[in-house]
Design a protein around this nucleic acid. Structure first.
Lengths: 340, 340
DNA sequence: CTGAAAGCGCTTACAG
DNA sequence: CTGAAAGCGCTTACAG
C-alpha cells in the first residue's frame, strides 16, 4: 500500500541507506547524479517518510507536545491568551520542521504518559500553576525536555519564558498615579496560586513605593479571571470601595467585566472610575470605552519558547535562566484623571 | 533507558505477547492472576507503551490531525471560532483515547505529507475553502479518513459537519423583518469562495420571499471577516446606503466592527440602524450595545465531527451525508424597530 | 490461557 | 560515495 524506502531503493537500484541519505539531505554522502535520480523517483511515487518508523529508529521524533490543563468538563485553552500562544507555537515549530501534539491534561498524573507515549522530543507547558510545576521531577518527564510558559516556579527543569509581569504592573500603576489616582483597587486571582499574579502585585506596590505613596491594603478583590467575576466586582465597586477612583485588573477579560459592572451600577468609566487591564487582547479595542492595558507580545513569547526548547533539545543543555519578554503601556480611553 | 514491553515480560516471567494483551485490555486471553501481576509491575516500573512502535506494528495510530490553513506570515486559527472548535475537538478525542496533531497548512500540497507522515488514522479539515476541498482526491489523502467542518463542497471524501447556515441567516432576516425592517444590508465575504456565505445569503433571501417582500440587491457589501473591514463598512454606511435601516453581517467580529463604524459616523445602534451577527462568540455580550446574533453550538459541532470521524475509521464506512447542527436566534440589544 | 517468529519502516554504526 | 546487518518497541497471525 504505502510507498516505502525499500520501494524507492529498488526502483533506483541503490540501497535503502542511500535513499535515506538523499531524503534527509546528507548531500555529502551521495553523488549528485544519484541524488537527482532518487529525488525524481521520490517525487514520482509520492514517497512520504514514516515519522513513526523514523522516531522508533532514531533517537529523535521531531514531535513537540503542547500540554494545557483541561478540567474534564469544560474545554481547555478557554483563555484567548493561551489560544493565541498555541497558534504561534505551531507556526514556529513548523518553520523548524517539528510537529505539534496538542494535549489537554485533566490530571497531573497524565503528564508522564503524555510525554513518553509519543517519545516527544520536548514539550511546552502552558497554563499550569507554579505548585504543579514544582512537583515535576526527572522521573515524571523521563528525559523529555520541558519548558513552562508564564511560570515563576523555581523548578530548574521547567525553566522557560514569561512576560515582565512586575514591570507591566508597575507601568500600569505608574500610569494611574501620574494621572492623579491614589486609591486604586487591585483585582486578580489569589497570589498564592499564581506566581504571575504575585509578580504583578509586587510591581503594583513598587510603583506606590517609588512615588513615595502608600497603598491601602483594603483595596483588593480576589476573583477568578472571568468576565462574570469582573462584572460582579464592578457592580459592587461603588458600595464596597466608595473612595476608589481607579482599578487595575490582572487581565483584560476581567477589566472588561469590571467596566461593564461599573456602568451598570450607574457610574461611568473613565469619568468616575478609571480601569486598566493586562494582555492587550484584540478585544480591548472592541469594547466601550476602549481599554487601556499593558501589552505583552505573544508572538515573541511563543517564538522565544520554541527557540529555547529546540535549542535545548539540539544542544542537550538546560537553559540557565528564564527569559523575560518586555511589555508596554497601551493608552486608550478607559483611564483619565480622577474627578477633583 | 526506556522501560519496554520486554522489560515487563522478563520481570513477570511471561512473554511479551501476554504483557501486550494485558496492557491492551484483552482480558479474555490472560488469566486473572497473570493480569494482576503484570499490572502491578507495569505500575511499579512506570511503563508507558511506545505509540510510535505501536503505530508501526499495528494498522492504527490512534492519531488524528487537525489541519488548518495558515498563511506563512500571520498565525493560523486566527478566528475565535476556529479556536473554540480546536479545543473541543481535542477534548472529544482524548475522551476516546485518541491524540491530536495540530498542523497549519501553508500550501495545499502539504496536505498529503501532513496526512501520511504520522500515519494518521484520520483528520479534520477546518477553515478550508470549498474549492480547495474539491481538489482533494483519494491520491492526496492516501487512505486516510478525512472530514471537513463548515464545508459545502460536493466532494464525498470530505463529507462532514456544519451549522445550519441557511436556517440561521433566514432566522436573522426574519427577526429584522418582523421588527419592521425592509432595507437590510447584507455584509460578508464573496459567495463564490465560501459555501457557508452562499448558504447564508440564500437563507437571507428566502426570508424576504416568504414574507412576500423583495430585497434590493444594491444592499450588499463584500468584505473580509475582520473587525477592520466592518469598521469601514459602518463608517460609510450612512452615505453609501442612506436608506438602510439594518445590517446582517455573516460573522460577529464583522458585525462588531460595523457597530463601531456606525457609532463613529454619528448614528446610533440600534436606534438608527439595527445590526445582527452570526456565531454568538462570548465577545457579543462584552460590546455595547450587546450584539443580537445567531448562535451555533460549537461544542456540538466539534463533538459531532469527532463522532463521525472516529465512527468512519472504526467501521470503515464513509458517512453518507453531511450533518447539520441547529442554530438559534439570540436577541440582545443591537436590534430594534426602525425609526418611523 | 500462553508463546516463538516475523515484520512494520526506518536509522545507526560499521565496512568497504 | 555506497551497502549489508542489526535493532528501535511493538502487534499480528499462527501454534500449542
Amino acid at each position: 500500500m504505502r510507498v516505502t524506502l525499500r520501494d524507492i531503493a529498488d526502483e533506483a537500484g541503490v540501497s535503502m541507506m542511500t535513499v535515506s541519505n538523499v531524503v534527509n539531505g546528507n548531500k555529502a554522502r551521495v553523488s549528485p547524479e544519484t541524488i537527482e535520480r532518487v529525488r525524481r523517483i521520490v517525487a514520482e511515487r509520492g514517497y512520504v517518510p514514516s515519522a513513526s518508523a523514523r522516531s522508533l529508529a532514531a533517537k529523535s521524533s521531531r514531535l513537540i507536545g503542547l500540554l494545557v490543563p483541561a478540567a474534564d468538563e469544560d474545554s481547555m485553552m478557554i483563555s484567548p491568551h493561551n489560544v493565541a500562544i498555541a497558534g504561534q507555537i505551531e507556526r514556529e515549530l513548523r518553520k523548524r520542521g517539528y510537529h505539534l501534539l496538542l494535549r489537554g491534561i485533566a490530571h497531573p498524573d497524565e503528564v508522564t504518559e503524555a510525554l513518553q507515549s509519543w517519545s516527544l522530543d520536548g514539550a511546552v507547558l502552558l497554563g499550569f500553576l507554579d505548585e504543579e510545576l514544582d512537583r515535576i521531577s526527572k522521573a515524571t518527564i523521563g528525559g523529555v525536555r520541558v519548558l513552562a510558559v508564564d511560570s515563576y516556579s523555581k523548578n530548574r527543569i521547567t525553566t522557560g519564558v514569561r512576560a515582565d509581569d512586575f514591570a507591566g504592573a508597575k507601568l500600569a500603576a505608574e500610569h494611574l498615579i501620574a494621572l492623579g489616582h491614589r486609591r486604586i483597587l487591585f483585582a486578580g486571582p489569589s497570589f498564592s496560586d499564581v506566581g504571575v499574579v504575585h509578580q504583578r502585585f509586587e510591581g503594583f506596590l513598587d510603583a506606590f513605593a517609588d512615588a513615595g505613596l502608600t497603598w491601602d491594603d483594603d483595596l483588593i478583590e480576589t476573583v477568578n479571571t472571568t468576565h462574570a467575576d469582573g462584572l460582579e466586582v464592578g457592580l459592587r465597586l461603588l458600595t464596597a470601595h466608595p473612595r476608589a477612583t481607579a482599578v487595575f485588573a490582572t487581565a483584560d477579560i476581567l477589566a472588561i467585566g469590571i467596566m461593564e459592572g461599573i456602568a451598570d451600577s450607574g457610574a461611568s468609566v473613565p469619568e468616575d472610575v478609571s480601569v486598566i487591564g493586562f494582555d492587550n487582547l484584540d478585544l480591548c479595542a472592541y469594547v466601550t470605552p476602549k481599554l487601556t492595558t499593558i501589552a505583552q507580545d505573544i508572538g515573541e513569547k511563543a517564538a522565544t519558547a520554541v527557540r529555547m526548547l529546540i535549542g535545548s533539545i539540539e544542544t542537550g543543555k538546560q537553559p540557565r535562566k528564564a527569559v523575560t519578554i518586555g511589555v508596554d503601556l497601551v493608552e486608550r480611553a478607559s483611564t483619565t484623571r480622577p474627578r477633583t
